[in-house]
Design a protein around this nucleic acid. Structure first.
Lengths: 207, 207
DNA sequence: ATTATCTTGCACACCATTGTGCACTATACG
DNA sequence: CGTATAGTGCACAATGGTGTGCAAGATAAT
């Protein structure tokens, strides 16, 4: 009596719900279950077949998203801490779709804790990077490392969630902003991005 | 048949409600009317005696707060655009209590428009200041003036609403952050604040 | 082709919240 | 004082959301 394999449409629908939730909640973090389900082309009742709870849905969304971020954090290995920060920002930006939900949900009182936990590795990376940047003289030292790291996180969240991801040069804007926060002068950031055009592919941030 | 003068407790209570709403909504922008009323030491029913609507209450909160901000914006007249920005940030920071509600409500879809309208003067000041800073070579020119102005606004909102206003040096943190965004190197910002200690100085911790 | 799996619509109970009507009490004003 | 003004508690209807039970229908796996 081995249980039958799960139906293909079922797993597809489950993924579809997560997708719809990601898109929908990025705009409105408290969209109703009904809106999410319909946006996935399914009925509200069906959604409850895949997820016990609104909670369960959101928790999974956060967990899956966090994994991507943490993987990105690991993938950045540049020796130059300035470049490392720039590249980290750019790569996260490419995940904008995912980042925006995370940014939105992270502000929701009910999920702050889970989000914080899930993103711990990324946060550790940022903290280490900040320390390194200060030690090698690349980053500002008028703020303590923890404070600066926090500031970088908060500003990153803001820039990512409140700029139009589709507009040209948006990625460049995000990267430049974070480098400024880290303490680089804008000219230095400019030079850096010119010297390493691979970091941000879509150029042109006109004056 | 001349109507009698309004009772003193009535106007006090009205003010108390606005106060309570300010404090409560700063933490949780969608706190219920009941919570706000009780936090003001009044019953829900009484609140409805003073304000037609949840809307009406919030609209007044925004209007009153916006007036303060706009007044501050007008009060900053420094010729040096860097100092003007620093002072503007510092003065707004002193209004932290008010700023935090504004920041929280400004993110609420239902009130974005009203908030934007009410804060138009402040926004105009920031825009003009940004343009001036770019023209006199103080601010960065790798971003267009409107983009930079928007960035300054967003980061200001973030810093103000997501840092502990009571912690020491918080005002300094806010000011330094904004100067960095404007394009100053952190050393330059540091010099500026050392040369003009009056900008961040003397933060009253009045309850 | 059979059947277990999945989707759906509908009804339901439940909850929090909003805004109002009303009778009653308290109190500040003149 | 007397009285208009204000506060309170309670009941009420309405809204919009959550999560569940169930029967009937669709469909993918075997």
């Amino acid at each position: 009596m081995t249980t039958r394999a799960p139906r293909r449409d079922s797993v597809e629908n489950r993924a579809g719900i997560l997708d719809a939730a990601r898109v929908t909640l990025a705009t409105d973090p408290r969209a109703s279950i009904d809106v999410i389900a319909r946006s996935a082309g399914l009925s509200r009742r069906t959604l409850y077949g895949h997820f016990d709870d609104r909670e369960a849905l959101i928790r999974e969304l956060i967990s899956v998203g966090a994994q991507r971020f943490n993987a990105i954090a690991e993938s950045v290995t540049d020796a130059d801490s300035r470049i490392a920060l720039a590249r980290l920002a750019a790569r996260l930006w490419q995940e904008a779709a995912h980042v925006q939900v995370a940014a939105a949900l992270a502000l929701d009182e009910a999920h702050v804790q889970h989000t914080a936990d899930a993103l711990a590795p990324l946060r550790r990376t940022v903290a280490a990077l900040t320390r390194r940047g200060q030690e090698d003289g690349s980053f500002r030292t008028d703020l303590s490392a923890p404070t600066l790291a926090r500031l970088i996180e908060e500003v990153a969240r803001t820039v990512v969630s409140r700029t139009d991801a589709s507009s040209t040069g948006a990625a460049g804007l995000a990267v430049r902003t974070l480098l400024s926060i880290a303490g680089l002068s804008w000219r230095e950031a400019d030079e850096l991005l010119t010297a390493h055009p691979d970091i941000v592919e879509s150029q042109e941030v006109s004056a």
